[in-house]
Simulated assay, not measured.
Amino acid sequence: MSLLPTHADGPSPFTAGARRQQRRPSRSLPLILRRLLRFPQMDFEFASWQMAYLIIAPRRVYRNIYYHKQTKNQWARDDPAFLVLLACLLCISALAWGLAYGLGIMGIVRAMLFMVIVDFLCIGSLVATFSWFVTNRFLTHNQMAHAVEQKVEWAYAFDVHCNSFFPVFLILYVVQFFFISLLKRSNWISLFVGNTMYFVSAVWYIYGTFLGYNALPFLIHTELFLYPIIICIILYAVSLFGFNVSQHVLALYFGN
């Protein structure tokens, strides 16, 4: 007589475990997205620290990613606090611009959606995807023959965009706001101030992007990310002969 049962009245422990595993959220979803609505778990204090140092000492921010890699085994952030905080700042900026231009409630909402979704997320995703492809295709280099091949994570490429975008936000969304009355004038001082803001923000974005990829030890020739600054210098010099960038951008955004 067998001591083992030939049938079971209920599900086996293995079947129950499999069912519980199926009910759990998919682990294929990036951790930062799974935490996107868990505000109590976000470290907004550290995100604010990063924003401050992206202005005064950006290299220090990227110095910390090495320790993040050692502890979390990934280069990209796993905390969406920086992303959420920056999106909130963009919404506040859109509110201020909307009130200044008298856009009304719907106009302000449209400005918020445009600044967050188009300016920040969509354009940022395109830039991150391009940088991610270029670095993985042309700039990766593993010094040890038997070392595990390392690749740039797309999420890290988007982190680099977020970090580089923050100084742009301060210059074009905040500082420019306080120069509205000057930028609306049709004189060379208005042209010079407005174009200089866009030039500085573009150079800062490019330099921040370079720092982000230069911090990865398995990438080579990251100085290639600095070459677009030459194009910015040429365009800036040409624009000073009569093309007011600020007025054209503000007209595109606010119809004025």
Rank of each mutant, 00 (worst) to 15 (best):
A157L: 06
T6F: 15
F241S: 11
L250K: 07
G10D: 14
L85Y: 04
R27P: 05
A57G: 04
L226R: 04
E149K: 08
F169S: 06
N64G: 11
S93L: 01
R35I: 02
L85I: 06
L113E: 03
V152Y: 00
F166C: 02
R24T: 08
I206A: 06
L83M: 07
M51W: 03
M115E: 10
S93G: 08
K184Y: 08
L90S: 10
R27N: 09
R27S: 15
R24D: 11
F114V: 08
F158R: 00
P80F: 04
A202Q: 09
L54N: 13
F243W: 08
D159T: 00
W132D: 02
A96T: 03
A94R: 00
M144H: 13
Q50P: 02
R27V: 14
C162R: 10
W49K: 08
I230M: 08
T209P: 07
N256M: 11
Y66P: 04
G10H: 15
S186F: 12
N256V: 12
D78K: 12
M1I: 12
K184T: 11
G242L: 03
Q143A: 13
M106V: 11
A237L: 15
V249D: 00
V152A: 00
L224H: 05
Y253W: 09
R38S: 15
W97I: 00
W97S: 03
D78F: 11
A76H: 09
P13N: 05
T196S: 10
R137A: 12
F133Y: 12
N73T: 09
G17Q: 09
F177Q: 01
C88P: 04
R23E: 13
R60A: 09
M51R: 06
T196I: 07
N195I: 05
W154D: 00
S28T: 15
C162Y: 09
A155P: 00
G107C: 03
R77N: 13
Q143V: 14
G104A: 02
R137W: 15
P25C: 05
A157H: 05
P167D: 02
L4C: 10
D78I: 12
R35A: 10
S181D: 14
L99V: 08
H248W: 10
G17L: 14
Y253I: 06
L37D: 02
A128H: 01
P30A: 02
P40A: 06
F166D: 01
C91F: 00
E149M: 06
Y101W: 05
M42L: 06
A81K: 05
P40Q: 05
I65W: 13
R23A: 14
R77P: 03
Y62W: 15
Q41M: 07
M42F: 03
S26R: 05
I105Y: 10
I220M: 10
R77Q: 14
E45D: 13
L182Y: 11
L113P: 02
V116M: 03
L216R: 01
M197I: 06
T209M: 07
V160M: 06
I55D: 06
P11Q: 15
M1T: 12
Q176D: 08
M51S: 03
A96K: 04
M144N: 12
R185S: 12
W188H: 14
G104N: 01
I56H: 10
I220R: 13
F210S: 05
F14M: 13
A145W: 12
F158T: 01
A52F: 15
P11A: 15
I108N: 07
N214V: 05
C91M: 08
L36Q: 10
L224Q: 07
P217Y: 01
F46H: 13
